[in-house]
Amino acid sequence: MSGAASPLDSILLEDIAKNCPSEFLSFHECMGRKDADPQHCALQQYNLANCIKKSVPAFQRIQNICAGKLQAYEACLRMSGKKSACEQDLASLRQCASGSLQ
């Protein structure tokens, strides 16, 4: 994937920033520090993920409509342990998610 955000990514980021502004900013600031270690931002990441699950309509819609595709991708990741082995499942999930937001 290139550096440019896809329309799906843009929609989700906008919805996350709108519905979880303090959690989004806290995680972004933590990860933006020069000495940022993802382990040190675990609490901020947890808080952001919790807010997304509860308060972001676009995410909830994707989760409902694409539940089977999401489960397939998660199962692939668990079984293979590599993101690269699950690219087809991820593409299918992203396609479903894009369609669910139109």
Rank of each mutant, 00 (worst) to 15 (best):
R94L: 15
A17P: 00
R33Y: 08
L12D: 01
L48T: 03
F27K: 10
S84P: 00
L90N: 10
K83E: 06
S100T: 03
C51T: 02
E23D: 09
L8Y: 02
S92V: 09
P21S: 02
P7H: 08
C41F: 05
L12I: 12
G99S: 03
C41K: 03
I16N: 00
S80G: 13
L25K: 15
K53Y: 06
P38R: 02
Q39M: 11
G3C: 13
C76F: 04
D9C: 01
N50W: 03
S100L: 03
G99W: 04
S6N: 06
E87W: 06
R78I: 09
P38H: 01
Q45Y: 07
I62K: 06
A58H: 13
G68N: 12
Y73D: 04
K69R: 15
P7Q: 11
L8F: 02
P7Y: 09
H40G: 11
P57G: 06
D9K: 02
I62T: 06
E74Y: 01
S92Q: 10
D15P: 00
R61W: 02
M31T: 09
L12C: 06
L25E: 14
E87G: 12
R94G: 08
L77W: 02
Q45C: 04
A85K: 12
S55K: 13
Q45A: 13
Q102V: 07
A85I: 06
M79H: 07
A4S: 14
F24D: 09
M1I: 11
N64K: 15
D35W: 11
S84K: 12
I65A: 14
C76K: 04
N47L: 11
A49M: 05
K18S: 04
A91V: 13
C20E: 01
D9A: 10
A58K: 14
E87P: 04
S92T: 13
S55H: 14
Y73L: 15
S92L: 11
P38G: 01
C96N: 10
A72M: 12
V56N: 01
N50F: 06
Q45L: 09
P7S: 10
A75V: 13
E23M: 03
A91M: 14
S98Y: 00
A85D: 15
K83T: 05
A75L: 15
A97W: 02
S92M: 07
E29Y: 11
A49W: 00
C86V: 07
E29L: 15
H40A: 12
K53P: 00
L70E: 10
R33D: 08
S55V: 03
G81E: 06
R61C: 05
S100N: 04
A4L: 14
C76A: 07
H28P: 00
M1W: 11
K34S: 15
C96S: 09
S55C: 13
A58E: 14
A97I: 07
Q63R: 15
L101N: 01
C66Q: 08
L48A: 02
L13Q: 12
E14C: 00
P7C: 09
R61A: 03
C76E: 03
C41V: 04
M79S: 10
I62R: 07
L93D: 06
A72E: 13
P57H: 07
K18E: 09
L13N: 12
S55E: 14
Q95C: 02
L48F: 01
A17L: 05
R33T: 11
L43P: 00
C66E: 08
S22N: 12
H40Q: 11
A36N: 00
L8N: 01
A72K: 13
K83N: 05
L8G: 02
K34D: 15
K69W: 10
K53C: 04
R61H: 08
D9W: 05
L93T: 05
